[in-house]
């Protein structure tokens, strides 16, 4: 599902004298359906950068990234948009939404056109314990934990074969952590290939089928 070969990513900061900031080098990784790989390592090791390269958000400097049979490094914009829409779910650390759209619509919008979109969104929000009074409120005003759960809901409402999870449980309380852990496991058991960063050891142990250690480039 996911295949990374000799991936390197160096940021060039043109406005700081062309400083070069190597973050990834020689990264190779394979993740098959039903696997959940936890990236581990100190901050600055490039865990988030790797996820963003998989999503096609960052452009790798060299190497190859194949996700669901698409070569991400050379895919056209259209191909990448199609790949994301059909196959790749990405939970970022921050929720980015249009300021005025209510929470329920942020989630249901991901499956728009489907007649049961709203129902499915409601079920997910219930499961993630978002109080009903917040459903019709734009998430911009939500707490960190609530925003994160909206983010998780909008990603999980589509059953995508590839999931990239950047600290999905970071600001959740114990109860919600259990729920999200269960959701990740359900997705994996259903055949998803998952790469994630899980700070919480308990969550990591509960979801990961494999742990990949990363270290900072010297």
């Amino acid at each position: 599902m996911i295949r990374v070969r000799e991936l390197a990513k160096t940021f060039t900061l043109h406005n700081q004298g062309g400083a070069r900031l190597p973050v990834l080098q020689g990264v190779s990784l394979e993740v098959g359906p039903g696997e959940c790989v936890a990236l581990q390592g100190p901050s600055g090791a490039g865990k988030s950068t790797l996820l963003k390269c998989l999503y096609g958000n960052y452009k790798p400097t060299s190497g190859s990234v194949t996700v669901a049979e698409t070569e991400v490094t050379s895919a056209s914009d259209q191909e990448l948009l199609r790949l994301r829409a059909s196959s790749v779910g990405y939970v970022s650390q921050f929720l980015r939404v249009i300021p005025r759209v209510p929470a329920i619509d942020v989630v249901a919008d991901e499956v728009r056109g489907k007649p049961e979109a709203r129902q499915e969104a409601e079920q997910l929000l219930l499961r993630l314990r978002i109080p009903m009074r917040l459903w019709s409120v734009p998430p911009a005003t939500f707490s960190g934990g609530e925003q994160q759960r909206i983010n998780i809901a909008r990603t999980f409402i589509r059953k995508k074969p590839v999931l990239l999870l950047d600290e999905p449980t970071a600001s959740l309380d114990a109860e919600n952590r259990v729920t999200v852990t269960a959701m990740i496991n359900e997705a994996r058991e259903a055949g998803a290939a998952i790469v994630g960063i899980f700070h919480d050891q308990k969550v990591r142990e509960a979801v990961a089928t494999r742990i990949v250690e990363m270290e900072e480039l010297s």
């Binding site: 940021f11 963003k52 096609g56 958000n57 960052y58 452009k59 914009d77 990448l80 948009l81």
Partner: peptide, 9 residues
């Protein structure tokens, strides 16, 4: 490029 690519990288 894609908006998120251009803005993030």
């Amino acid at each position: 490029g894609l908006t998120d690519q251009v803005l993030d990288d």
